[in-house]
Write a protein that binds this DNA or RNA. Structure first.
Lengths: 402, 402
DNA sequence: CCGCCTTTGTTCGAGGCTAAATTTAGTGAG
DNA sequence: CTCACTAAATTTAGCCTCGAACAAAGGCGG
């Protein structure tokens, strides 16, 4: 559904897309492949014939028919490859190694100081270890980080929270690792994961909104991530909500994030006496859960402001669905009352029914998202560009093209 | 530049795109056509050969070479067709008839009451007259209206300001007129015009923001209009800017439009004593121009609020450029001071350089935009859909397919 | 058991686009 | 004037995809 209407893939993209589909959605019939990828059955027959000959895929059992000829399921001969995903934050790098179907093989976290002059070299070193530790065919490395990335392929990064400006992350990592490297904004990587494994199967246009240290947002439009003119779309954390107000990491005052980001919540909570001056976000959440009114009010007010702002974003973008993710979502129950009241009330009547889903939080979420940049590249030729081509080449020739 | 990277047109789309290009950008060489449309020179040679045979285009003069073989310019044999554009408002319909290159042939305005039960029939009648009065090949009719339109082809409209809900505008007009009809949100039509004739030639991603009775916004992303999941994107006039505040036509309170739309400005001006209770927007603007402080303050405050909100929109969408249009733009000088100060200050540093251009206002703007839906359809197969195909058929067989 | 239906999957011819090589038509240096 | 160079336009061969017709394979009602 989400993919129908997508541009017909051409050239070896079809082969890659078929392989990617079998990897991400599991065994499928030829007819299904044709429907999902929006190509003709004739093309699927030809493509699969070739892939069968090369023994990249195999025919599995037939499924019982429901009135017509029973479908023959096709599956990958084996995990045709894996990917490594890394999420870079201000104090650590989270790394996962995943199979083509998205299952996490290994996962770890390494301390990291992005402000050091040689931070990029350090990052390259960390990833080099991960690449070396990966066994089996490695399709590529996906990197997610909090900042604007001009394109997945070139990977030129502006990330104020990391202290990086015009940093050539993509090029450096590529040179250091010798495998395809795709770089994107961290929230966009979550959106890419949703396209491949999540709600993208049912919805073509949705937004992924994250709550955590900051507030982020990735927009999926007609099955692919909208990145804006310079990869800077989705900075909803820096929507100004008041003319002045608390100052924000971005240098301005009155940003949404300055109110409802982790630091903003803590500052408000301390001022209101809801927690002591040394309290953490966990302290605050505990107090709110315990029913302490001042603490609960912090979350309720944050939910209201967040809801009001998100209503504006919905009016601007008109998504089908909003998916909430990120660390902060663990405490969503505390936000929800204030949010729902304010959000629904300030939506235009025609939009009031929009679905908002809070995903459960998992530690690996971000890094798995980064890995899915690689796994999504067969479906998103435009975004993945030249590095995506390399990924596709590797997907089709297990002995690692380069 | 803007169009490069666009999906290669296929099938008869190439012929239509070549004709459309020659119509909208004037005579071009084959090499230019190939570059702009992103197709191979070989295809252009083949396509133009056929069009030359059919005498739809002709070879014009050669241009002096700069080191290589001189280019031969190709041009349309004659105006290969025209289009009719109509903008529907709460009290009138503005209609223009344009040539393929966008020059306005005729223009008029007809009173119209959208709240009447038979409003759609009345609109069909008005347009039937326009179609009858049009001489020469008519490619189609474009209709722009203030509301959400699910798709240009089906033309199912939700327009609170017209009192229309789930109104089958497209289908009805099509049945009544017997020519291709494309329907879209009015601001999107301005955006379509910008793609074909305006800043779309230099920018691939920009926003068109209108100031007038309400505040609207159309987003162009990678050369085509982003419509959102249900054609409702760009309702930035209904971004909530306060928790409560003046009530708005959409049923909510505190919308941007309630403050800086025409009604909002007037209400604020009356309350501040800047104009009398019977004053109009013209009165207010005159007073402000004359230097009356209370009147000037109304505009300055509106500019500030508008700037702050637009900064948030820029953070969300990340366009390359903002084009300001609409009736209200006549008084932009009055808004500008407040706007610039607030807008730039509340933008993130990386975005602070974004260009904002105020287009000059012309009476026909809206209706010409609607007409350009038709003229843009060769370039935007996805948006224009089945009706676009009909337009393309008519573009290639002057004796009017149907 | 037998047609008739539905759905899957294949074959084949046609159309459309492209890359690469080639031809055409100029400029400009010596 | 000639030769090298450049860019435009064309030709050619080949690949990719699709539509349409057809074959395959089962369910279902009589």
């Amino acid at each position: 559904m989400a993919r129908s209407g997508q541009v017909s893939p051409r050239g070896d993209l079809v082969r890659a897309a078929v392989l990617g589909l079998l990897g991400t959605r599991g065994a499928s019939s030829r007819a299904d492949i044709a429907r999902v990828l929006g190509i003709s059955p004739a093309t699927v027959t030809q493509t699969t014939k070739e892939l069968l000959q090369r023994e990249l895929i195999t025919e599995l059992r037939s499924v019982p028919s429901n009135g017509g000829r029973p479908a023959t399921l096709l599956g990958l001969v084996r995990a045709a490859g894996g990917a490594i995903g890394a999420k870079v934050t201000a104090d650590h790098v989270a790394i996962v190694s995943v199979d083509l179907d998205g299952t996490v093989r290994t996962s770890r976290s390494v301390p990291f100081d992005p402000s050091r002059p040689a931070a990029l070299e350090a990052l390259a070193g960390i990833l080099r270890d991960a690449v070396a530790a990966h066994d089996g065919q490695l399709l590529g490395v996906g990197v997610g980080l909090p900042g604007a990335v001009d394109s997945q392929t070139s990977g030129l990064v502006d990330a104020p929270t990391l202290g990086w400006s015009r940093s050539p992350v993509g090029r450096r990592l590529r040179d250091a690792l010798g495998v395809p490297v795709l770089v994107d904004n961290d929230v966009n990587t979550l959106a890419a994961a949703q396209i491949v494994y999540g709600h993208g199967r049912e919805y073509a246009s949705f937004m992924v909104v994250t709550i955590g240290l900051g507030i982020g947002c990735g927009t999926v439009f007609q099955g692919s991530v909208s990145r804006g003119a310079h990869g800077g779309a989705g900075e909803i954390g820096h929507i100004p909500v008041t003319d002045d107000g608390p100052s924000c990491g971005c240098g301005n005052t009155g940003c949404l994030e300055a109110y409802v980001g982790e630091a903003g919540l803590l500052a408000a909570a301390v001022e209101a006496g809801a927690i002591g001056p040394r309290g953490t976000i966990a302290t605050l959440a505990r107090a709110a859960r315990a029913g302490k009114p001042a603490a609960a009010a912090i979350y309720r007010d944050a939910g209201r402001l967040f809801g009001r702002t998100l209503a504006g974003v919905v009016h601007t973008v008109d998504p089908d669905l909003i998916v909430l993710m990120g660390e902060g979502i663990r405490d969503w129950a505390l936000w929800e009352t204030g949010f729902e009241e304010s959000f629904r009330r300030q939506l235009m009547p025609a939009r009031r029914g929009i679905r908002v889903l809070a995903e459960s939080w998992s530690e690996d979420q971000w890094a798995v998202g980064a890995a899915s940049l690689v796994l999504a590249s067969p479906f998103d030729a435009v975004a993945a560009g030249a590095q995506g081509e390399l990924v596709r080449a590797r997907l089709q020739t297990p002995e690692a093209a380069r």
